[in-house]
Design a protein around this nucleic acid. Structure first.
Lengths: 211, 211
DNA sequence: ACGTTAGCTGCACTCAGTGCAGAACTGCAA
DNA sequence: TTGCAGTTCTGCACTGAGTGCAGCTAACGT
């Protein structure tokens, strides 16, 4: 992320300002009661300019390209020779969960909460997730042409992300525990196990989850 | 679906008229270029009245509750005594794909196409799917209280529906054959079979991850 | 036949998002 | 430093989704 020109640095600073202003206002007043005009004013730009940074109001809540998707693609690209598709995905997910602030950052927590409470945000988030999943499936099919045809790769990627999403939904449904990163990690871990158990047998070499 | 009073019958007729008008106009002019006012005018109601039948424009494309969800809930309710949770879901999804009259109808085909082409429709569709998945998870957890806690049930339901959805997405990414209902149903069945194949063998021993 | 209630509709409004045209700014070179 | 070229910012006018309200019409129960 090396931004050389003044223009690019300035633009990036403005972008951050928009995101920060949006997070502040939405945390304080709620999503629906915060208008794009409010956010723009707080970030000291014109309302019109907001839409040259983010295509929709929802998108301001998803400012980084999904780190987990990038990590997964990297894991597929740098796979062990003996590693089966399911194992690659497990490894990618573990690494992402261990290293990233995806789950504990301020924006991430706000995003999780809003995905639960605001239909428009949930819809946008699910869309973005499907896009990532599709990308993962494509790379997976390309990396394991003899094991997986495109449809099977889609099923595998869908099973994993669907399991994680379903587990998190259940976790937040009952008594919403937003502030507990350990519960989050545990839920993801269990979802991974449940989703990939049926695939492990047909994946070539048996999974050897260290740790 | 027994509608006794005149009021209810009339309302149902109007509802059908709205759906039909929407399908016509959208098929002819596209989704974005069809306004709610157009649909209302074609159905011979006031624009305002549209929103007393459907909460948003997108919802007119999802007039019936998802048949797969209803079938799955029924399968859970009428489960074999020896059947594990994964087995029930696999059976329900297989049957739903086989007898998928609601996947080949006019509205269903239009919906499938628009879910691929129009972000707003895709977002709404994914939301509805998640709602159904949550419902399935709840019933599953209630039916197998000793095997599954809510989070595990969410993960399992998510894994299976995610697998099918991912497979269907991969399927539709490549050759969009929206015109031929028979080919469509065959393709959907094939994708479902592929998605569920890994679960078929190991479904006897449901995963019960301790922690 | 009559009061009650549910549904229909127009009106005025808010807000998201777009197209356009001009102003302001940055990058670069003379 | 100045001037030119390309980019970005911004106001303005507009479309379309969706809401709240108030008055009207039509079906309902008695």
């Amino acid at each position: 992320m090396l931004l050389v020109s003044l223009r690019e640095r300035k633009r990036e600073r403005t972008r951050q300002a928009i995101v920060a202003a949006a997070a502040d206002l939405i945390e304080r007043n709620g999503y629906e009661r915060t208008t794009v005009a409010d956010i723009a004013a707080a970030a000291e730009i014109g309302t019109r300019t907001f839409f040259s940074y983010f295509p929709t109001k929802e998108d301001v809540l998803f400012p980084e390209a999904d780190g987990r998707v990038r990590a997964t693609l990297a894991a597929i690209a740098g796979r062990w020779p003996s590693e089966g598709p399911a194992e690659v995905l497990v490894r990618a997910l573990r690494e992402a969960a261990a290293s990233s602030e995806d789950l504990t950052g301020r924006m991430a927590r706000l995003r999780l909460r809003l995905m639960h409470e605001v239909p428009a945000v949930r819809g946008r988030g699910l869309q973005i997730q499907m896009d990532g999943q599709r990308e993962i499936a494509r790379h997976l099919a390309a990396a394991y042409p003899s094991d997986l045809d495109p449809v099977a790769a889609g099923a595998l990627a869908g099973a994993l992300t669907g399991a994680v999403t379903g587990a998190l939904q259940a976790l937040f449904d009952d008594p919403p525990r937003w502030e507990d990163p350990d519960a989050l990690r545990a839920a993801i871990e269990r979802a991974t196990t449940i989703a990939l158990a049926p695939w492990a047998s047909s994946a070539g070499s048996p999974p050897t989850p260290s740790r």
